Each structure stands twice: as structure tokens, then as C-alpha cells.
Simulated scan of single mutants.
Amino acid sequence: MPDFVTPEQIARRTSAAVDAAVGAGRALGLTVTDAKVLHDLFSVVVHLAPSPVVARVPTVLPHSAGLGSQAPRQQTELDVTGWLADQGTPVIPPSPLVPREPVQRDGFSMTFWQFVEEDRGKEPDYVANAELVADLHAALRAYPGRLSFLSAAEPQVVTESLVLLEERPDLIGPDDLDRARREWQVLEPLVRSRPAFEKAFPGVDLQPVHGDCPPANIFPGVDGKLYADFELVTLGPVEWDLATLGPDLESAYNRGARRNGMRPLNDDVLSFVNAVGMLRTISALMLAPQLPPLLGYLNPAIAQWRSTPFAGGFTSG
């Protein structure tokens, strides 16, 4: 049973990620003399100053996520974000100063992005951001590349985590784990199979979606808001991007959808993605030993999950 990392271990992990980013940046020809950590949670985000380049280095990952599995997903993110930028969509784009591909160094796999100055005086307006997500979906509909169906749900990670959590009663009790496993038996077939999803939800269209709570991943740049962090970009229903966010943000999204001539959110699909989202929350408990503060976010959500209908009310029959 792995222990929770200490602050000293987190500091060493961050330092190693910074060193790798600096070394990779210099190897690509960038001038880096004053690297600054901008963000450190699931990834270490480093401004490779004075170059206008930011490196994002994932550091908190599922146990099965090796370099070989990270790079294809990172390349997809770079491809989608670069295409959006080329279409004039307001995104944080890949850096034009280095090749548009992930770089592996010292056991890390990283990507490089254009540095954008943050407007730190603004509080995030998640309701307004949710309405903007409809604009993003409208732009993504034309993306010509191939995307995997609901890869953002990370079904293999959920499956593996629900097995590993049996050995972690310090993270989840047996009754909760039993319910989560039974819910996953109902939901997993629809997550893994596009035909199964389409049979369950006939007429619900699929398209490229952000994949990772876009209302919380809109960056407040000094010159305006920018969509960011497409690490989990996927093919799925638009409802996926509003999973577990509640009625206020759902209503805001619907306003944006109407403005773009798009359909409103489907209540049945919302129930499904909310249920899947909660199981992803439970599976994230396995990351808590790497990131102890995570429990402060996960446990309240799990407490709320206990009061919700089994599998979001969805049944396989």
C-alpha cells in the first residue's frame, strides 16, 4: 500500500519536472534563464522565461500511464488545439517556436505552449464560461481529424482503479466501493462502445468535445478568454463537457447552444455522463497518495454521490 507523498517529495518531483522542461527547452534551441512555475497540481506548468514558451509536464498520473501512452494523447491535443488556433478560435496555441509534438526527457512527457499573460484580477465566471463552451463545440464540429469515442472517460483507468481500491479502505469504504463497481457494470459497456451508446441514446449526435470540464479550463488572458487544456479531447456527446456541473451551468450552455443553432442538452444523456463522471471521481481516489490535497475535493463529491440514484437512474434493460 503506497504511502501518501510528503511535501518534501512533492518539492523534489516539481524540481525534477522543471529541470526536465528546462533541459528539453534548451535542447530545442530556446533561451531559458529564469524558469518560473506557474501551476503545480496534476501537471507542473513552467514558463521557460525569457522565451515566450510554457511547458506542461504531467506528474500525477494513473499507475498504468507510461510514456508510451501519454505521447499519443498529447499529440492529439496539440493537433486539435493547433487546428482550432488556425481557424481563429480563441485558444492557447502550441508554441510556434518548437516542433508541434510532445517531448520526452528524464522520465517525463511534455508539451510546449505559447506564453499568455494571465489577468489575475478577474474571478472566474463559470456560468458565463459554460455559455462559451457552446461556441467551442460549434468550432469543434468541423475538426477533420480522427478522435476515439469517449476516451476522456478513461474506462481502463476506472476499471483498474476499482480493483486497486479494494486494498485501500483508507480511501473508500466497502459499501461505497461495492456500489461503484455495480454501477460500472451498468455504465461501462456504453462508455467503451459507440454502437452501444447510440443504441441507448438514439438520435443523439456525437462530435469532438473538450473532454475535461471546459468551463473550468477557460484561461483569463489579459486580452480575453482563451480555451485551454485539451488533454482529454475526445469524440462524444456535448453533454460530456457539462458533466456534474449542475443546472445553472447547463442552462447557460443551452443559451449558447441556441445562439449557435445547436441542440440543447439531453436530460437522459446528462444523467448518464453525470453517473460516469462520479465514477471517474471515485477512481481518482487512487491518485490521492500522489496528491494528498485531492481528497479535500473528492470526498465532498463522493458524499453527494451517495444520495443520487443508482447509476444516475440509467439501467441496462
Rank of each mutant, 00 (worst) to 15 (best):
L232Y: 14
R192L: 12
T234P: 00
W240H: 14
E239K: 12
L245G: 03
L249V: 11
A180I: 08
S251N: 15
A243F: 02
R255I: 05
E198N: 08
F219Y: 13
H210I: 05
A216K: 06
E250V: 08
P202T: 06
A243T: 04
A228Q: 04
D229H: 00
D248A: 15
S193K: 09
P214H: 01
P208E: 03
L226C: 11
W240K: 01
R179P: 09
D212N: 12
R255L: 13
E239W: 11
L226E: 04
A252P: 09
P247E: 08
L249P: 10
V209G: 03
V233P: 04
F219A: 01
W184C: 10
L245A: 08
A196Q: 08
L245W: 07
F230G: 01
W184L: 04
V222S: 09
G221Q: 10
W240N: 07
N254W: 07
F230H: 00
D212F: 05
G224W: 13
Q185K: 15
P215R: 03
W240T: 08
C213A: 13
E198C: 07
K199M: 13
N254G: 10
D223Q: 10
L187R: 00
G211V: 00
N254V: 02
L177G: 14
L232M: 14
D176G: 15
E188C: 09
V238G: 09
F230R: 00
W240E: 12
L232T: 11
A196T: 12
L190Y: 09
R192G: 12
G211T: 02
Y253D: 01
